[in-house]
Computed example of a mutant assay.
Amino acid sequence: MNYFIDYLNQIVPLPEKSASAINEITVRRKLSLHTSLLRNGDVCREFHFIEKGIARVFYYKDGKEVTAWFAAENQIVSAIDSLFTGQPSLYNIEILEDSTVWSLQYNKIEPVFQGHPIVERLGRLLITKNYLLLDERMKLFAFCTAEERYERLLLQIPDILQRVKLGQIASYLGISQEHLSRIRGRK
């Protein structure tokens, strides 16, 4: 099969027919640094599973880029609100290093859900997993210091300092690059 199917099988073991149905609607893509998967104002029509690489979701506020989150290996990246509502997205999604992703168009998944209830269950579990990541992100800002947010990021993506610009990490943490340098200096 493929890397994406292997990952899905770890969540819910899929019958061969269901795995084949998913395989038929996914496309493995090799993407270069700075490839844009979505631009602000566009409607998001697909989600992407990252096999290798890292992506950044960001938006503009007062003319500055603000990093909302990072997605690395074995994570899904998309603008879920736009994907589900069909409304233009406020987000941009950018590939930050040469990457391999599995892309799936949202309009092709519904027939697979209808024909394969286990895939619908899998979809629910993936949405739940991503919702919990979002909830954790909100809790980080509500209850954690900048240093604690930094430590949590390093637990999630240990090599992020080698893969992402410090300014983007600082933006994600909600601090200045100078503050990030001070935190790093204390470690």
Rank of each mutant, 00 (worst) to 15 (best):
S176I: 00
I109Y: 00
W102Y: 12
N107E: 14
Y7M: 09
T100M: 08
Q75R: 13
I76P: 02
F141I: 14
F143T: 11
A71I: 15
K64F: 07
I95Q: 04
Y91V: 01
A71Y: 14
K165F: 02
Y60M: 09
L155N: 07
K108Q: 13
C144G: 05
Q114C: 15
R184C: 03
E136C: 08
K165D: 01
S176K: 01
G115E: 12
T35G: 02
G123Y: 10
E151K: 11
I25G: 07
P13M: 14
S89L: 03
S18F: 08
V119F: 01
H179T: 15
I95T: 04
I5D: 11
S181W: 12
L166Q: 15
I95P: 03
R186Y: 06
Q75F: 14
G86K: 05
R121I: 14
Q10R: 15
W102R: 02
I109W: 00
V164A: 00
T145H: 00
L154P: 01
I127D: 14
N130I: 13
K17I: 11
L133K: 11
L38P: 04
L90Q: 12
E46Q: 10
K187L: 15
R56N: 00
Q87K: 12
L96P: 02
F113N: 03
F84M: 10
I11H: 13
E46C: 06
L173E: 00
E136I: 06
S99Y: 07
F84A: 09
L33P: 05
A55E: 05
E178K: 08
Y60C: 04
E94L: 10
R152S: 10
G123E: 05
R152F: 02
K61T: 09
S171P: 00
Y3E: 13
P158F: 06
E151H: 10
S99G: 09
A79N: 10
L38Q: 05
H116S: 07
F4V: 12
E120K: 11
I25T: 02
L161Q: 13
G167Y: 00
L104V: 08
